[in-house]
């Protein structure tokens, strides 16, 4: 186990190295300078590029960047005067993380509930309706949903605030917008694995022992039905907590999702790099944790198949 984790971590580092290198050179190949604005003069532009070391050869810039990175310094934003990328992440990420975790928790609970409901109901109309709804919500992009929610609950009914304020109320709309897709995904997954498990021998055994329905459903079946969910949970959490540009933008949430797209548009090289490294790290770790927890839940899964 320890050996496996070490090996995976090693692979993760190699992945990170490639990620950093490729992103670094891609950002530099991108045409356009971070300091380009409508009214800037060529002398000003040259002075700014010199100030940030962008006039140096690209290999030198790369070595400088790696050196700083090894000291944990992600550099300074070119567009936001005096703001370091570390600070950008440390202020933006907690917001995104919180929103992502809440929406994931909501999705998990509601998704599992709906999944079980779909499996145990004897009414075909209910099952059909839920399946249709989940298919529908998988295909609705979250920005469409976000705008619809904003216009209906915010502008039309005036129940909920449109602007993010950090209050409980202002979490409701963005969390809903972010949670709908994973709810649909999770409910379908739980439905299929739950339906499969419900007919297995151990369930028949449990039933015949005279155990209560609730106990059989919640303990015996659910435990087994959740294994496939654990495998997808890692990437799903990573997806949720790395932020959604559109949802953050619409609800003016000061998270990192918004920074990501802005930084690419603005050619803010250091911010692009910093966020890529940060999000890359999260995804690698989330996948690793997901694999390990799978092995813990299901002893049939061997992590180290080759050995």
């Amino acid at each position: 186990m320890v050996k496996y984790i070490m090996k995976r971590l090693g692979m993760g580092l190699v992945t990170m190295f490639f990620l950093i290198t490729i992103t670094f050179f891609l950002t530099r190949i991108m045409p356009g300078s971070p300091f380009e604005t409508e009214n800037i003069t060529p002398t000003m532009l040259a002075a700014m590029e010199e100030n940030y070391g962008l006039d140096k050869p690209i290999d030198q810039q790369y070595l400088m960047y790696i050196k700083e990175l090894l000291h944990g310094n992600l550099g300074v934003s070119y567009k936001k005067t005096g703001v370091s990328v570390n600070r950008l992440i440390s202020t933006g990420f907690p917001v995104t993380l919180k929103l992502g975790l809440i929406s994931f928790a909501v999705a998990l609970v509601i998704g599992i509930m709906i999944g079980i409901w779909m499996s145990v109901t004897r009414k075909n109309s209910v099952r059909g309706g839920l399946l249709t709804a989940s298919t529908l919500f998988i295909s609705v992009p979250n920005f469409v949903l976000a705008i619809v929610l904003m216009l209906f609950f915010g502008v039309k009914l005036n129940w909920l605030p449109v602007l993010w304020t950090g209050s409980f109320k202002s979490y409701i709309l963005p969390v809903t917008a972010l949670a709908v897709y994973p709810i649909a995904e999770i409910s379908r997954l739980v439905h299929s694995s739950f339906s499969e498990a419900i007919n297995q021998d151990f369930v028949v055994m449990a039933n015949s022992k005279g155990l209560g329905k609730a106990r059989v459903h919640l303990v015996h079946i659910l435990k087994n039905a959740l294994i496939p969910l654990v495998t997808v949970a890692g990437p799903m959490i990573a997806f949720q907590i790395t932020g959604s540009f559109v949802v953050e933008n619409i609800f003016t949430i000061p998270g990192i999702g918004k920074e990501f797209v802005n930084s690419v548009n603005n050619r803010d090289y250091t911010v692009i790099m910093g966020l890529t490294i940060f999000v890359g790290g999260i995804i690698i770790i989330a996948n690793l944790l997901s694999d390990i927890s799978c092995a813990l839940v299901d002893p049939r899964i061997k992590l180290d198949k080759s050995k």
């Binding site: 917001v95 975790l101 809440i102 928790a105 609970v109 329905k213 919640l218």
Partner: peptide
């Protein structure tokens, strides 16, 4: 049993949410 399952889930969801939002307010 179905209803029981629902109630259980909803109560769990409730707990999770209120805790998170408290943290949220503090962290903000």
């Amino acid at each position: 049993s179905c209803i029981l399952v629902m109630i259980l889930m909803v109560s769990l969801a409730g707990c999770g949410n209120s805790n998170e939002s408290k943290n949220a307010a503090a962290d903000n």
